[in-house]
């Protein structure tokens, strides 16, 4: 009845075999949380679907000497609860825990969140903030790495060829004096699409009290998450304080003014990003600067 063919490889070799036959009408799904909705809304009718959800080898979070490796089929729930990720990239754990609902996180995967390349994808800013790369397998059986920035085009598009699939997300283990945080703003507290989201990773040792090497990525303010050097500058070489928080918030507003100048949403977002600024600031420095709950 339907002109859809579903292939369900259950290991990497079988996946590569599927990719060999891929063409422009081939799509990849894992959890299926977005695809199945499109299907039932009659937005897609033809083609081959390669379902990666059966490849158990792609569900893991591993620690190597210098990097953390996440299998592309790891669910957002698993990522949000994973101890290694909580330790090495709390911003990613926080972001994954705020995607959709419990049911969606139980099914949706990190590669799906990346591959869909939505402007408001929550896991992308944290991954970009640490320069994560993606391990990609092609129909030719080759495996190569690209940065997440290279793969995500934005506005719902990615750079992957039709015979390519993300198999692993890799990010460097930052040294102990790096901290990170994520915050998002939607129309409500939970189960909400981000109107703005942000991830910050920076170097801070309580001894020297100095912020260095800040990386700030903002989402939902353009076709894809982007780095804000203005905001990074506002943080670098500063000591966490209430004054810095104000300065940081102002920089965020400035970035909004630049990024979405003239859009109807600018009026709201330029002010509301202050909330994100505060959330992130107190997640990072709540132990050294009091007052996070007011």
């Amino acid at each position: 009845m339907s002109e859809i063919i579903i292939k369900t490889p259950d290991n990497l070799e079988a996946l590569i075999e599927c990719l060999v036959c891929a063409n422009e009408n081939t799509g990849l799904i894992s959890g299926g949380t977005d695809f199945v909705i499109q299907l039932s809304q009659r937005k897609r009718y033809r083609g081959t679907i390669i379902d990666l959800s059966r490849i158990n080898d792609l569900k893991y979070v591993k620690e190597d000497k210098d990097v953390i490796r996440i299998g592309s089929g790891t669910t957002l729930t698993d990522i949000s609860e994973n101890k290694l990720i909580k330790k090495y990239l709390p911003s990613l754990s926080q972001a994954a825990g705020q995607v959709g609902s419990t049911q969606i996180r139980n099914r949706g995967t990190i590669a799906g969140n990346i591959g869909n390349a939505s402007p408001c994808a929550d896991t992308i800013p944290p991954l970009m903030s640490v320069g994560a790369s993606l391990k990609i397998v092609s129909g030719e059986g080759k495996i190569y790495e690209k940065t997440i920035d290279e793969v995500v085009i934005g506005s719902g598009r990615n750079n992957l060829k039709f015979d390519e699939a993300i198999v692993e997300i890799v990010f460097p283990k930052l040294s102990n004096d790096y901290i990170s945080a994520f915050a998002k703003l939607g129309t409500r507290k939970a189960v909400t699409i981000s109107k703005i989201n942000a991830a910050v990773a920076l170097k801070y040792s309580p001894k020297e009290k100095l912020i260095e090497d800040a990386k700030v990525y903002l989402g939902a303010l353009g076709p894809k998450s982007f780095r804000s050097e203005i905001v990074e500058e506002a943080l670098n070489n500063k000591i966490p304080s209430k004054e810095l928080l104000k300065y940081f918030s102002k920089a965020l507003t400035k970035q909004v003014d630049i990024s979405i100048a003239g859009r109807s949403s600018q009026v709201y977002k330029r002010e509301a990003i202050k909330g994100i600024g505060h959330d992130i600031f107190y997640k990072l420095f709540g132990n050294v600067v009091p007052g996070g709950d007011s």
Partner: peptide
């Protein structure tokens, strides 16, 4: 009321 974001709880 969150004065920064306008969200009301």
């Amino acid at each position: 009321v969150d004065r920064f974001t306008g969200l009301v709880k």
